[in-house]
Write a protein that binds this DNA or RNA. Structure first.
Lengths: 144, 144
DNA sequence: CTCCGTGCAAACGATTTGCACTATG
DNA sequence: CATAGTGCAAATCGTTTGCACGGAG
């Protein structure tokens, strides 16, 4: 456990979020200005292999790192791309095929909800109030 | 609907699989040898926007394209990376939060099972028979 | 002294984009 | 002829790797 590795882990834990490698890099850089992004990636990989953190493959191009290694599901804001943990009792999710599905031997599953988080919803409501006079143009804004 | 677009769509539909852009490119190239990968990407994007095909964000680095645009779940072979449709009655999957989850407005979810497909399982069984004399070395082979 | 880990830059794989050209309406 | 779509190459983005150096045992 090197100094850099320690700081990277601390910052990830302190964030209490699911950070991307470069988000974490920006945070770590405030404490270790000479650290490189490669070191962040290398240590995240090492910490993942050691089971100390978890690498999450989720919506969006970048992978996210999670200091909570417990198996849980996630919810993803399609607007701001934040990712939160979901306290979902997996036993409640009935009907999941436990054995073979069309020849497959199941080893796990990944369940990810998407939606609009509270902050984005409030932001949207605020925006729509501010702009309700030119609502006619709204469709033009909705490009992309 | 240009000629290239037509062929791309035909090949995707004919494959009855979830192809990556470059897998599809290789297939299309047999019929249009001068087509470029960029054209394949551009047309896949256009077809996706038009709702004619679906772009699936799944395990693995590459996105996969699906001529079946219906909402359904998937199962992914962690060994050969094939992706199959899952006929899973979503109503049977009980306990999914329909309304608000910690402030979120849910718009959808993505459920992906992982496992070993039949072909890989048979391949594995065959391999383990062929190699059972040197099973002692098996752990050395299991490096990723 | 020996290594492992680092910083840097360059390589990489998947995807996107700028540009000049071409086919088609 | 106007313009949407193409092929090509270069750019981009996230991530990984080669290499020489540096610090801890």
């Amino acid at each position: 456990m090197t100094h850099q590795r320690e700081i990277i882990l601390q910052e990830l834990q302190a964030s209490r979020q699911h950070l991307t490698a470069d988000e974490l890099y920006e945070r770590v850089r405030k404490r270790l200005p000479r650290i490189s992004l490669a070191t962040v990636y290398r240590n995240l990989e090492i910490l993942t292999q050691a089971g100390i953190i978890a690498k999450r493959e989720v919506s969006g191009r970048q992978k996210r790192f999670d200091s909570d290694v417990s198996e849980h599901d996630h919810i993803f804001c399609i607007q701001c791309h934040r990712l939160d943990n979901l306290e979902l009792n997996r036993d409640e999710v009935g009907g999941l095929p436990a054995g073979l599905v069309e020849g497959y031997t199941i080893t796990g599953y990944r369940l990810e909800f998407s939606g609009i988080c509270r902050e984005c919803r409030l932001k949207n409501e605020k925006m729509s109030k501010e702009t309700e006079t030119w609502d006619a143009d709204a469709h033009a804004v909705r490009r992309h």
